[in-house]
Design a protein around this nucleic acid. Structure first.
Lengths: 206, 206
DNA sequence: ACTTCTAATGAGTGATTACTCACTTATTTT
DNA sequence: AAAATAAGTGAGTAATCACTCATTAGAAGT
């Protein structure tokens, strides 16, 4: 049966696809989209160059295929357990989770933000895969905190902007200037950023 | 005299150089380094392609030439007048100054941070032109604040990292997602970021 | 006016690239 | 075992690119 056949072969096909995607992510994030060559991706994936184009019609399709699935994965993890803890505790957990995700997929994130400048598809993937869900998670927390009188009534989007900047740049900076970046655990970084974001640099008793 | 001759011609030569640099910045920041072609830069500069290589030996030299001078310019502006105002006031001024500089040279900054990933020359230019001077300016202020007991004794570099992230990402975010970014003045943005960075999201009377 | 020098030109060049296609290899079906 | 189908291959292709160089244009000096 053609069904049977499909199932049998498709598993191997899927593995090949994964090999290519893995190599593509590596080469893209090391050289940028334009700087990466399909020949090098094929080499690192251990396949012939032609094989890439049997799985992905164009180089650009390969780029979006690299970005999209990874983006969603691991996004809505900590919901249940920490939802009803204190707002500060929730935030610290959320931030730590985000920093971990970004550290595990550092190359992907750097690639995404660099290429988002030049490709609207990447911007859209970024928006639908990360920004949207992230906002959906944080907005209720933010609103609740304000309603309870715990947070200042700051505008949401600009505040998110600052928060994302702190978190994103933490990883980028560490990559660009490793010698300037004292090695610290994710926990320490999360504590530091949370302290700043929630309470600021100025001592509260002054 | 050859002197006379030189003077006469060199002015025009310098203008040509500027035309090329200007066009190069535009094309580089729109397409990235690899995505930009010398043909397009020549077209936008209104010169022949060969002319570019009379002024800059290679494409990469053109890139560094685009970045270096712009970086230093306008860096140490507000020193004198605001040095001895209150720490908070100093910070707000410094931040506003930085945001203005980044807004005026938005394309340059995006280009620089994207390409810093791939070219060590760019990383070094970034470090010597921006990071170093910036640290030199902020560190005394930071240390003094701590010594006076006004600031929490947080580690300097990680705190800088968070601050830079907030400021940098403000512009990047506005470029990537203009529809999500309510148009606001630099003053408003500076006030908002300063409030967050200095005092945090949580109300201090809670 | 003639020579000299320099900056500018753009067609040309070799290298590189994304993508193709005729063919091989492997697996399944009959 | 033979035929059929699908997946993989890599030499080949047309296009593109950074960079070159013989030539031209124009100003400066005499």
């Amino acid at each position: 049966m053609s069904k049977n056949q499909r199932v049998r072969t498709k598993k191997t096909v899927e593995e090949r696809r994964q090999d290519i995607l893995e190599a593509a992510l590596k080469v893209f994030s090391e050289n940028g989209y334009k700087g990466a060559t399909t020949a090098e991706i094929a080499r690192q994936a251990g396949v012939a160059e032609g094989t890439i184009f049997r799985h992905f019609a164009t180089k650009k399709e390969l780029l979006t295929a690299v970005l999209e699935p990874k983006i969603v994965e691991g996004l809505i993890v900590l919901d249940q357990e920490k939802r009803e803890s204190s707002p500060e505790e929730f935030f610290r957990c959320f931030l730590k989770n985000r920093l971990e995700l970004m550290q595990e997929n550092a190359g992907l994130f750097r690639l995404m933000f660099a290429e988002a400048q030049y490709h609207s598809e990447v911007r859209e993937a970024l928006f639908h895969g990360i920004l949207g869900p992230g906002i959906g998670l944080v907005k209720p927390w933010f609103d609740k905190g304000i309603a309870q009188g715990l947070f200042k009534p700051l505008p949401f989007i600009p505040t998110m902007r600052s928060f994302m900047g702190m978190a994103m740049f933490y990883g980028v900076f560490g990559f660009l200037f490793p010698n300037l970046s004292p090695e610290s655990t994710i926990d320490e970084a999360a504590d530091h950023i949370a302290e700043l974001f929630l309470h600021g640099l100025v001592r509260s008793d002054s």
